[in-house]
Simulated scan of single mutants.
Amino acid sequence: MKILHTSDWHLGRSFHGAGMLAAQAEWLDGLVGFVAENGIDAVLVAGDVYDRALPAVDVVELLDSALVRLVEAGARVVVSSGNHDSAVRLGFASHLLERGGVHLRTRIEQAADPVLFPLGDGAQLAVYALPYLEPRLVAPALGLDGGGHTAVTQAAVARARADLAIRRSEGTVVSVIMAHTFAGGGAPTDSERALSIGGLDVVPLSVFEGFDYAALGHLHGRQALSESVRYSGSPLAYSFSEARQAKGAWLLGVGPEGIASVEPVGWPTQHRLALLRGRLEDLLADPAHAAAEGAYCHVTLVDAERPERAMERVRTRFPLAVALAFEPEGAPRERETSYSARLTAARSDLDVCSGFLEHVRGRGPSGAESAALVEALEAVRLAEASA
């Protein structure tokens, strides 16, 4: 049996103000083609199907078309909700869709309700797909009196593990668990939204022990935290920190004895990023940069003085240049002071708010102001999660 582990499609996302729906549609075309050509039996999507809780109509239509085409190509699809998704909206009509081969897991009550696939010789594959677990919303349902991401993930996984133990007592079962979380040892990028305001709540890999494979989502770089715990990463680069990453998915070969193979796979798209550095005139003339002419570019100029109309001139050769920085050679690195630069460097919503305060008044938030911001951001995040 062949399984494709994907995640973080973020349908509807923009890149530095440019819509990415055409690039995402191109990637989905490649996904459907890969599934059909390689006889893929199941496609896993480990959260963040959409980029927003309220996706636009054309974004919903793109997902609808992709799911229909994947099923027509011969695959069943297992989708769990991520922190960017509205679990309620994504889970609409889940019972009806399940009859057509699309299995949506958006509620904590489904933690011990695996999607089952026959493996032959009486063996089964059980896929336990956990939705994104917002601690303050799901802790009561899990019988917890508070706790962070680690506590709620342990409790949800324990439910899946208990169901798996019963099934294994009755026959041969190979297990996959899907989760959308920040696991220990994972390398983040600039394009992920922080899962906890004011700090990180990292889930240890030991939480996933007892399962043959953990298909994780949330981090956008494809990476293996262990042989059996992996992030597929996002299908496209969503920040310049991902410019040199290989994008795609993990292809799993599964048999009655377990996970037989795991290999990285991918397919080309027109969405490309380039990091350029040099003097303006050199960048405009050097034929070595020809490949960047059709890519989204982050350009760092090292001229001794800032050239006039720098971005305008850069775009005469690199029309998709979206970010421009100045670092004169031989001079101390210039401090970025523009608000747009602060937004680019921000790693969380709290960073954005703090950067805005520092930009407009010359100093960051006080302790009391930081606490108020954290409280306000938590309220907004909880409202989104429960929408």
Rank of each mutant, 00 (worst) to 15 (best):
Val360Tyr: 08
Gly258Cys: 01
Ala36Leu: 01
Glu72Asp: 11
Ser261Tyr: 00
Ala46Gly: 02
Phe211Pro: 05
Lys247Met: 05
Gly210Ser: 02
Ser370Gly: 15
Ser7Cys: 09
Val229Gly: 12
Glu378Asp: 15
Ala139Asp: 10
Val152Glu: 06
Ala126His: 13
Pro114Lys: 05
Ala260Glu: 14
Val45Met: 12
Ala290Phe: 00
Thr181Ala: 15
Gly362Ile: 14
Tyr238Ala: 08
Tyr132Trp: 15
Val265His: 02
Ser261Cys: 01
Ser338Arg: 14
Gly355Ile: 10
Leu236Thr: 10
Val45Tyr: 02
Ser366Glu: 10
Asp41Met: 00
Leu284Tyr: 00
Leu130Ile: 10
Gly122Val: 11
Glu109Gly: 04
Glu305Leu: 14
Glu305Met: 09
Thr300Ile: 14
Trp9Gln: 10
Arg89Gln: 06
Leu116Ser: 09
Leu70Met: 11
Glu305Phe: 10
Asp212Glu: 13
Thr344Glu: 15
Met178Gly: 10
Leu251Trp: 00
Gly17Thr: 09
Gly17Arg: 12
Ser14Phe: 02
Arg361Tyr: 05
His289Cys: 00
Ser94Asp: 04
Glu242Asp: 07
Asp113Cys: 09
Leu133Gln: 12
Ser338Ala: 15
Leu133Asn: 11
Asp85Ser: 06
Arg333Asp: 05
Gly210Leu: 03
Arg89Asp: 00
His103Val: 12
Asp282Glu: 14
